[in-house]
C-alpha cells in the first residue's frame, strides 16, 4: 500500500492503495465516483474512459502509480451542471439506450473535440473505435458529435 495524491475534477484527493491499482477502481471503490464504468478490464471496450491532462485514456489499465501530477477528469467533472456541449448534444439526440457505455463514449468524444473541434467522419470513427456499444447507438453518437462540434 502507498499514499497517492491525485487531482481529480479540479480537487485534490489522497488514497492509500496498492500501487498497481488501476485508476478505474480507485475512482469507483475508494472515491465512490461511479460514473466511470468497468466493461472489460483490458482496454477493449472504452467504458472506463477518462481524461488525463485532457487526453482520453482507459482507466482500467492506467495504474495509479503512473498518474503523477497529471490531472484526471471523469464524467462527473466534465461539466459542473451536466451541460458540456457533448452532454447536451447527447440529450438532444436522445442517444442512450441502456446508457452503460455512454459516459465512456462521451469522454472519448469530448477529448476528440478538445484536440480537433471539427472532426471529419473518418476522424470521428478513428477516435471512437475503442468504445463499444452493444445497444448499437453508433449512428446517433456520430450525429451528436457533429452537433456538439457545431455548437
Amino acid at each position: 500500500m502507498a499514499i497517492f495524491k491525485l487531482k481529480i475534477n479540479g480537487k485534490q484527493y489522497q488514497v492509500d492503495v496498492d500501487p498497481s491499482t488501476p485508476v478505474l477502481w480507485v475512482l469507483r471503490d475508494h472515491l465512490k465516483m461511479m460514473g466511470t464504468k468497468y466493461g472489460c478490464g483490458v482496454a477493449q471496450c472504452g467504458a472506463c474512459t477518462i481524461h488525463l491532462d485532457g487526453e482520453a485514456v482507459r482507466s482500467c489499465i492506467t495504474f495509479v502509480d503512473s498518474v503523477g501530477d497529471q490531472e484526471i477528469t471523469t464524467i462527473e467533472g466534465l461539466s459542473e451542471n451536466g451541460d458540456h456541449p457533448v452532454q447536451e448534444a447527447w440529450l438532444e439526440h436522445d442517444v442512450a439506450q441502456c446508457g452503460y457505455c455512454q459516459p465512456g463514449q462521451i469522454m472519448s468524444a469530448a477529448a476528440l473535440l478538445n484536440s480537433n473541434p471539427h472532426p471529419g467522419d473518418e476522424e470521428i470513427e478513428t477516435a471512437m473505435s475503442g468504445n463499444i456499444c452493444r445497444c448499437g447507438t453508433y449512428t446517433r453518437i456520430k450525429q451528436a458529435i457533429k452537433t456538439a462540434a457545431n455548437s
Binding site: G35, T36, K37, G82, W90, D94, A96, Y100, Q102, P103
Partner: peptide, 14 residues
C-alpha cells in the same frame, strides 16, 4: 433519465 446517464449517475447494479 437521459441527464442522469450523460452525467454518470450511479444507475446500475455495478
Amino acid at each position: 433519465v437521459g441527464k442522469e446517464i450523460v452525467t454518470g449517475k450511479p444507475l446500475f447494479g455495478y
